[in-house]
Design a protein around this nucleic acid. Structure first.
Lengths: 141, 141
DNA sequence: TATCGAGTTGGAGTGCACTCCAAGCAAGCA
DNA sequence: TGCTTGCTTGGAGTGCACTCCAACTCGATA
C-alpha cells in the first residue's frame, strides 16, 4: 500500500470484490503468529499503515495488510531489527523514487541472511560431531 | 575443563607445554569477538569456570578456556539462550553421568538450527524475488 | 436486560543480554 | 617519581522488542 499512488480511504462500489474481505485482529494473530499486542504495537510505531476500523472502532485487516505483514514477518523472523523494517516501510510510503533505497536495504539484509545461513551450517557441523561423540562414547567439554 | 577430573590449579613441571600458554582478556576478546564485558559477565554467571588469575589478579585464559568459549560462542551465535547454555555447562560440570542430558540438549538445539536454516532459505527466496522486481521495474509493497 | 467475549486505548512493566560506571591497583616507561 | 595503560570489582544502567494492565465499549446471546 501507498506505493501504488491514489488509493486512500473510500472506494465504495464497482471494485472487483478482491480486497473486500476483512479480518479481525485475532484472526490475523492466528495467521501470522504475531500476538495481538504485537500487531497493535506495529501499527502504533508506524510499521503498518493505520488499519481500517469497523464503525465500532475494531480493526479490520485487509488481505493487503496480511501480505504486508507476511513480508514484515519474514524480515523480522530472519533478524532484521524493527528500526530497519520501519525504514523500509517509510521508503515504500514515500513513493516510487525510493525503489533504489529499498532494494539496497533488502540486498543488505539478504547478505546478512546468507551470513546467518553460513554460521548456522558451521554450527550444525560442530553439533553433529559433538552429538556423535555423546552418542558413542563418554567425552569431555 | 571439569569434565576431565583432577586438573585444578598448579602443575608445575614436566607438562607437555601444551596448555601452558595464557591469554589476557583483551586477547580473548579479540579472538572470540566477545567484549571484555561479556567475558567477565559469562564468568560471573557461571558460564565459564573461574578463570585463573595472575599474581596481580588478572585473568589468564588457557587454550582450553578458549575452546570452551569457541563452542559457547557458536551456541550463542545460533540463538541458544544464555540460560540454556548455562544448563549445558552445568551438566558438563556435573560429570559423565550427564552425557545423555547434554546430548538431548544439543539435539534440541540442532533441530532449532535446522528450522532457522529453513526459515532463512525461504526468506532468501522472497528477497531474491523482490530484489529482482526492484531492479527491473517499479513495483509496490 | 444482564452479561459475556472480543475488542479498544495510553502508558507502564518485563526479560534478555549485555554494557557501562566509578574507584582502585599493578606494571612498564619517561 | 609520576603518568599511562590495562586490568580489577560490584552494582547500576541500557536497548530492544515486546507484553501486560486497567478501564472502557460494543455486539451478540440467554
Amino acid at each position: 500500500m501507498s506505493a501504488v499512488p491514489a488509493e486512500q480511504a473510500t472506494e465504495p462500489a464497482a471494485a472487483p470484490a478482491d480486497r473486500t474481505l476483512r479480518h479481525s485482529i485475532s484472526e490475523v494473530s492466528a495467521r501470522t503468529g504475531l500476538t495481538t499486542h504485537t500487531l497493535r504495537w506495529y501499527e502504533r510505531i508506524g510499521l503498518l499503515d493505520p488499519i481500517d476500523r469497523s464503525h465500532a472502532g475494531r480493526r479490520l485487516y485487509s488481505d493487503r495488510d496480511l501480505e504486508r505483514l507476511a513480508f514484515l514477518g519474514r524480515l523480522r523472523l530472519t533478524g532484521m531489527p524493527v528500526a530497519d523494517m520501519l525504514r523500509y516501510v517509510e521508503l515504500v510510503r514515500a513513493g516510487d523514487h525510493t525503489v533504489e533505497g529499498r532494494r539496497d536495504l533488502l540486498v543488505a539484509h539478504r547478505d546478512e541472511v546468507r551470513q546467518k545461513i553460513a554460521d548456522l551450517h558451521a554450527t550444525l557441523a560442530v553439533l553433529d560431531r559433538k552429538i556423535d561423540l555423546y552418542s558413542g562414547k563418554k567425552q569431555n567439554t
